[in-house]
Design a protein around this nucleic acid. Sequence first.
DNA 1: CTGAAAGCGCTTACAG
DNA 2: CTGAAAGCGCTTACAG
Lengths: 341, 341
Amino acid sequence: MASSNKTPTINDVARVAGVSKKTVSRVINRSALIKKDTREKIEAVIADLGYVPNPQARALALRRNFLLGLLHDNPNAQTVLNFQEGVLDAIRTTEFALVVRPVDRHSPKMLDDIRHFLEQQRLYGVLILPPISENDELAALCREMGCGYVRMGSAMLDDEEHVVASNDREMVESAVDYLVESGHRKIGLIKGPEGFRSAYERAEGFMGAMLKHGLEVAPRAIAQGTYRFDSGVVAAGELLDSKDRPTAIFCSNDEMAAGALHAARQRDIHVPRDLSIIGFDDSPIAAHIWPPLTTVGWPIREMGKAAALKLVAPADEAAQRARFPAQLVKRLSVARPAVEN
Amino acid sequence: MASSNKTPTINDVARVAGVSKKTVSRVINRSALIKKDTREKIEAVIADLGYVPNPQARALALRRNFLLGLLHDNPNAQTVLNFQEGVLDAIRTTEFALVVRPVDRHSPKMLDDIRHFLEQQRLYGVLILPPISENDELAALCREMGCGYVRMGSAMLDDEEHVVASNDREMVESAVDYLVESGHRKIGLIKGPEGFRSAYERAEGFMGAMLKHGLEVAPRAIAQGTYRFDSGVVAAGELLDSKDRPTAIFCSNDEMAAGALHAARQRDIHVPRDLSIIGFDDSPIAAHIWPPLTTVGWPIREMGKAAALKLVAPADEAAQRARFPAQLVKRLSVARPAVEN
DNA sequence: CTGAAAGCGCTTACAG
DNA sequence: CTGAAAGCGCTTACAG
């Protein structure tokens, strides 16, 4: 070691290798314009010295940080965390780091806050989780600021390079198919909140499937929810108290399905004997309530990984994928209806 | 505006204000060595120009990034997210950002990985969540690298400036007190995993309380869990199948309590009529299972905020706090035992 | 394919 | 209390 025990810089590498630091910079940045011999010599010195390029210096010179941002607002905690894990899978061995930024969808200053955040942190790119991923103004802001972005959604919200999407609509169709195969004909729906694309997609999937099976959906068989547990209790209550109550309910997410289970229990309606329930998300609660919930699970971690790769390694094969099929997870909350109807 | 539409730099501010950039730097860094008039003039120019110091440049010059790291391994998703929210509460209006880093407690390379991460990112400081917060080698590593750190824990793991702690032991005592007041005398314990300080504290709290009440704890009234749902099912099964089964079980976390509920249901043991259950964490599942779980809740978000403040604003009053009392959340999973025993 | 010079936007001693 | 010079560790045109 020529220098002391300080961490080595590009200058140390250049000196030891007997080249200019520009040349070292070229191997760091994987420039093609470099002779193989030179590259190998420099790589050896880098390994020998244990040199790691200083990201702060690169960030300053490049006017760009090696930071990915995760923008999210109030989604399911497990979803956020699984997504984070996926992102980390993609960047763990790179120089990138992940910065998280919860935002407030209801604040009128949200876009300004995000603008300021992007301006200040000079992020390499951002990953946007639903529901704010559905905000087209936000995507436009990212483009305007020269910040890469990938949106996670329930449908193809943008070009393939800017989206990782699940197929919610199809999945709800297959959930309804399953209920119909199990003998249900009076099937209720608890919708997610207005303005959420996922809620829309799931409701559309439901209506489409019912139509396909020639089944009627009475207005009283549809209730509005907010994706929160409490709204599931209330909405299911409405369905269960209506005359001619459904023998099965599709809930647009697991939280509301858990609420529906409470509503049934309060009325001494046994699940699944007297009522079948299907949720959506396959969040941990689905497996931990009683009866364990039949639901739709999507590969969130993989989606997070692919989303990050779209930003940091767009040429990578795994970065090409934009569609991520969800699948039905059968547990114990669905049974044949006690009385065929 | 003197310059074009580029974002203004410290030079622009200096020029417009008619001072040297060093002086501008002084007001940015809140140096005391500056005349009030000068400061106010410069502050006016800063506001006028909409100047924001470039964090990358500061990071390079200071050899220190304005980034806080969140190190965690496999804890409850909601805990991580709530903690993140708290941290963001503390740094939202500052130049700091939060970088997340899940780590693998079981990897032999964990400390090396973290060392490399700290070296590369030059973090301002890290926030460490349990269980890895209990790793003293990790804390030593942070000190060695000159990286600030704050550990979250179930007990005072370190000096006050390096800890935000809950009082798990006391809280479990009061949970047991509550069971005893409700008439229970045969109370079982499902422990958390070996090597977790929180598991130890909770078990100690349990044993201490039982001793205080002069109640015996038979070996068959204690079962080992892992903090996972499935382990709760198994452990509760053991307790419920033992002769002279308990009328109440304290579970060292909510996941296992949910598992215990399953075990009871499988045996047609009604909760709370035939069996009372108390959990720990007050995670969302606690309120969403049936019956809603009596549990111990701790102020995670506040702890996150205080932890971040200890790093970024140690003089702040809220940064002084190191102890955060949890409290018993009474719901429906506890009742008087059907038969006094 | 390689290099010398200038620059990214700040801060740090050192003077005064 | 304020400033001129040098430096943090990289990259970017521009030459050659």
